[in-house]
Amino acid sequence: MIDFQQGFVKLAPINPEQIMPLLSPMIVDNESIVAAFRTVRDSVVFTDKRIIAINVQGITGKKTAYTSLPYSKVQAFSIETAGVLDRDCEIELYFSALGKVKFEIKGNFNIVHFNKILSQYVL
């Protein structure tokens, strides 16, 4: 499993179609992607059912670890909007038996709107 205590390097929003070749074996029937983010090699995808963290491993990148975090296990969450000097926004989720999971998002991303979407699945 991915070590969430170290957190992800700053994630950049991407078009969900870019991640589908890597993600399609993991998606279940009637599951749709809400938002997708990528670092240099790793990705995080928010669906309407869960969060899927994709950790590409090894020199060749052929080994991949998938971690599924269901919204039903989220006990609390918070967001932090970008500021003038700190242009990154953050999402922190607190999972039972796992602890805090933090995602830093760089670039232009509407975290306030995303908070409403996330609230629909967590609350």
Rank of each mutant, 00 (worst) to 15 (best):
M1R: 12
I2Q: 06
I2S: 04
I2D: 05
D3E: 10
F4N: 06
F4Q: 06
Q6L: 09
V9H: 10
V9F: 09
K10I: 09
A12M: 09
A12H: 09
I14G: 07
N15T: 10
E17Y: 04
Q18P: 03
Q18M: 13
Q18F: 12
I19N: 04
I19G: 08
P21L: 08
P21R: 10
L22P: 04
S24Q: 12
S24I: 09
S24P: 01
V28D: 10
V34Y: 01
V34C: 13
A35S: 09
F37H: 06
R38F: 02
R38L: 08
R38E: 13
T39H: 04
T39Q: 13
R41S: 13
V45M: 00
V45R: 02
F46Q: 05
T47I: 01
D48A: 01
K49P: 05
K49N: 08
R50Q: 14
I51D: 00
I54R: 02
Q57S: 01
T60Q: 07
T60K: 12
G61F: 04
K62L: 13
A65F: 08
S68M: 12
S68A: 11
S68D: 09
L69N: 02
P70F: 07
P70M: 10
S72P: 02
K73I: 11
V74H: 03
F77G: 08
S78Q: 14
L85N: 11
L85G: 09
C89K: 12
E90Y: 13
L93A: 13
L93C: 03
F95K: 01
S96D: 15
A97F: 12
K100Q: 11
K102A: 12
K106F: 01
G107R: 00
G107M: 05
N108R: 12
V112T: 15
I117G: 07
I117M: 13
L118W: 00
S119R: 08
Y121H: 13
Y121D: 03
